[in-house]
Design a protein around this nucleic acid. Structure first.
Lengths: 168, 168
DNA sequence: CACTTATTGAAAATGGTTATCATTATTATT
DNA sequence: AATAATAATGATAACCATTTTCAATAAGTG
């Protein structure tokens, strides 16, 4: 995978722009990346989708909107967005990665996951976020200091057996 | 993937046995699975390894100890152990899954991960476990009640850029 | 011992993801 | 505007971890 070089700076928050475009376009300009049609389409799709989507999911939709968009570009764009911290990449163990906007103004709030080890069902939960925020914030501070790590995101997952599967 | 059926019961704690074998052998008996040579080898290897290993890593070692052991069986065994909650499966985004014993008496303590989005470096950390335990315990209780979920394990990961990569 | 069922491993198939490379689009420069 | 320099694209092929298939073998049972 080609590694992109990221200049750190503003958060990916809507409305922080200086050039009038959508918030993410500034992020692109800042790192010297171009704002192109395929990239716009991919981000639009992520915006509209209130779910974890696979690369193929995105490709199918993108291709429907603009048949000239190829699967490779979808992968590249998702990868780039992940490295920029705009998208979070998940692997739930079913062989394909899932992607999700980190801050989707129109979409789901930040959440964590409950994953069934048997049927692979995923439950998103966003309760108890106050407690989590406190905990995460504290830990994140300590870790970034101790390891000189620039932390941009986190994931919490619980594994086990869902209501169905636990009865077996 | 074939789904195995798991009878719940004892924890995978050493020395809780009733048939004299190693602790995990009872777990196997309990679910009607056979204790075979390849399975013993795989578990032995996991015991000896103080690290996250890939299926291929395990296969190479297993094959060295007993050349008749095939890669397929390694995959199957790791998968089975994961579903039994004896092994935890991780995906750090480099295309191959990693496995680790959940309770390794001779190995590493429970820990969480710091993952570099650029170079994919993994840092294991186990500091602040007291705070984490408190937080995890509370959340786990709430979640298992609310979602009728039988939680057996969890993972916390922080994403960002490591000391090296953040300077770019 | 005979029987039933689980386990195994070699090989082939699958399928998500990446690398290649010639073409095209975008930005910078004149 | 025209041109040069560079980044982005997409079709195809390659890659490689993981699964499936299936006949052979081993383990528990009566």
């Amino acid at each position: 995978m080609k590694i992109i070089f990221i200049k750190k700076g503003e958060d990916n928050v809507r409305g922080k722009g200086h050039r009038g475009g959508a918030w993410w376009q500034n992020r692109f300009h800042d790192i010297g990346a171009r704002v192109t049609a395929p990239r716009e389409v991919v981000i639009d799709i992520l915006h509209e989708t209130d779910d974890h989507v696979s690369a193929t999911d995105v490709y199918v939709k993108a291709h429907a909107m603009n048949p000239s968009i190829g699967l490779t570009t979808v992968y590249r764009t998702l990868d780039m967005l992940t490295q920029m911290g705009i998208v979070q990449k998940f692997d739930f163990g079913d062989g394909k990665a899932r992607y999700e906007l980190v801050n989707n103004p129109d979409g789901k709030k930040h959440h964590h996951h409950l994953i069934c080890l048997r049927c692979k069902a995923i439950i998103d939960y966003s309760e108890f976020l106050d407690d989590e925020l406190e905990f995460i914030g504290k830990t994140q501070n300590r870790l970034s200091k101790k390891y000189n790590f620039d932390i941009t995101d986190h994931a919490i997952s619980f594994y086990g057996f869902c209501d169905q599967c636990k009865r077996v």
